[in-house]
Design a protein around this nucleic acid. Structure first.
Lengths: 193, 193
DNA sequence: CGCCGAGTTGAACTGAATCAAGAAACGTGG
DNA sequence: CCACGTTTCTTGATTCAGTTCAACTCGGCG
């Protein structure tokens, strides 16, 4: 898969870009093929890259009292960045790593900023990504707050049925805000197949 | 306070607008003075207005099994909308009402959409508001997920010390995802003053 | 002055956490 | 291709934070 084809996929999933901005994007985009568990961003680092997931998956996580807490998953056609580093210019509070062997598109944050100023559609693309993220977070707040462990798990599986095949349960448990033991117990009754 | 002055306040808190876009905004903005507990948006309604809070406060809430659950507060210089209606064009899942007697600026969503296309700064203003909301939601997920009831309450009070003076405890409790009884118990030990 | 909604307090209950073992799956080298 | 060690997941017993249900207090308002 070429960078051009990937940009087309971004257009397909988000919005159409002008030829000029697309051309500029292609020039600064780098395709990466990585093993699983490859760290893209470390805590404390200024996250100066934005990643688009072509194939595979990644997660953002942080350490809370030594425990690894996942707080975002990204799959095919998702973007992933360290949001507080990107938007607040602060050192990243998160690590970001691939979960599966993955193909990613990497663009430097500086280029994104430059192109957002220069090309309105790139700015709109950013706005669209942020909007989707915001709506997803909103849903997540509701889900965390008033659903039982089982409901939260079922919700996640409904939205992303293949997640249990692709991501270790530990990460799913911490993402859902429960212990691995609880997740295991919840899953048991429905482990047909 | 005039509409012009309010627009200046928006500029001060968000970003500078061009004279032209400001002028257009003033033309379509309406100032409202409302009693407390005035409903601005009803569930099921297409939320076709955006509100900026000049003075006072408002909240977005929904009914879950008949119970009133607050999921957003807005105070001076905040915007408040029904996000799923605004961004997904769906009927609102939320009610929005004033909490205190309030002064609001009202702009129709159609005008916002029009101006966002026409004036780049308006689009950027929207992006900025969404970005801030996203970051706040992100923080909230972390807070809900791994903090005790006491820590969540203390966090909220740290960010917004006057909230307990301005908003009934029932709303604060549901916003924090706990019962009123729990909130009451938590507050007791520190109810000095 | 008495009522009513908001907040408080108490006692029993419960969903999930914690701590502690085990079982299964996985991959690495012989 | 199998044995061994490591990591991932499961299961069990106990504990605990927060819920639920119920009664009570307080302050404001008609």
């Amino acid at each position: 898969m070429t960078v051009d084809e990937i940009i087309e996929r971004i257009e397909h999933h988000y919005l159409t870009l002008t030829d000029e901005s697309k051309h500029e994007l292609v020039k600064v985009s780098k395709m990466l093929t990585l093993d699983k568990e490859t760290i893209l961003v470390k805590e404390g680092q200024f996250a100066d890259k934005t990643y688009f997931i072509v194939q595979g998956s990644a997660r953002a996580y942080y350490l809370k009292d030594g425990k690894d807490i996942t707080d975002w998953f990204a799959f095919e056609n998702d973007f992933i960045i360290s949001i507080n580093s990107f938007f607040l210019g602060k050192p990243s509070a998160h690590y970001i790593e691939t979960v599966e062997p993955s193909t990613l598109l990497e663009v430097s944050t500086d280029d994104i900023a430059l192109f957002s100023e220069r090309y309105r559609e790139i700015d709109k693309l950013g706005k669209l990504v942020i909007t989707k993220t915001m709506l997803q977070l909103q849903q997540r707040v509701v889900s965390i707050q008033f659903e039982t462990a089982l409901q939260k798990y079922e919700n996640l599986v409904r939205i992303r049925p293949d997640i249990t095949q692709r991501v270790p349960l530990t990460h799913i448990a911490s993402y859902l805000g429960m212990t691995l033991e609880t997740l295991s117990r919840i899953r048991k009754p429905e482990r047909r197949i």
